[in-house]
Design a protein around this nucleic acid. Structure first.
Lengths: 94, 94
DNA sequence: TGCTGATATCAGGACAGGCTGATGTGATCC
DNA sequence: GGATCACATCAGCCTGTCCTGATATCAGCA
């Protein structure tokens, strides 16, 4: 999941969605990207369960799922904790 | 920084380093990757401040910096919190 | 000093993934 | 029902980036 945030445009889409749900046209306007590119990334994020699509007539609103973000954050924290607790060990070289 | 965890091999290197400091030869052995590839990623992680290199004679030990990981985790948590607090708003479509 | 082993770097090829223009699909409005 | 708008998808190009084989660097040891 972490690796889904790697793309610059994708990161900006997520930042934008963190400020509130938005439809594709908002994202296209605000980010200055082409519509197919935005749709492409939204599809990826949707399939990864990071955002959900809520069709409203001709528009499609996208909403960020905080649980998905939190899960990634917790995984990182666990990693950091593990590193801290093993910092003292030192393996031999063959 | 998040985007530095996107590569599969890089992620495995970080996982490995979370279990304790290791030198390049350990990583090469454990991950089954070629040495230049491992060195390449270590350089990227080093320049990003995610790991530090500690030369010890002919060997170079690498250590994960938990603070860098924590910082990324906090940024994600902040993002999730922001999304939660703005979930109710809804922008108009032009 | 010459040799060996551990890393780092370089150059080149290969592949994944993003971007764009064109097109398809529904929903709304007249 | 036809036009239009918002959005999704498709096909093709293109760039970034990863991997590999070769080579350079540097420490330890005889």
């Amino acid at each position: 999941m972490i690796r889904l945030l790697d793309d610059p445009l994708r990161a900006r889409i997520i930042e934008q969605l963190a400020d509130g749900p938005a439809c594709t046209c908002h994202l296209v306007d605000d980010l200055g990207a082409k519509q197919p590119a935005v749709s492409h990334h939204l599809r990826i994020l949707r399939e990864a369960g990071i955002v959900v699509a809520e069709p409203r007539g001709r528009f499609t609103f996208y909403r960020l799922l905080p649980e998905a973000i939190d899960e990634a954050a917790e995984r990182l924290t666990a990693l950091a904790d593990r590193a801290r607790s093993t910092a003292g060990s030192r393996r031999e070289c063959s």
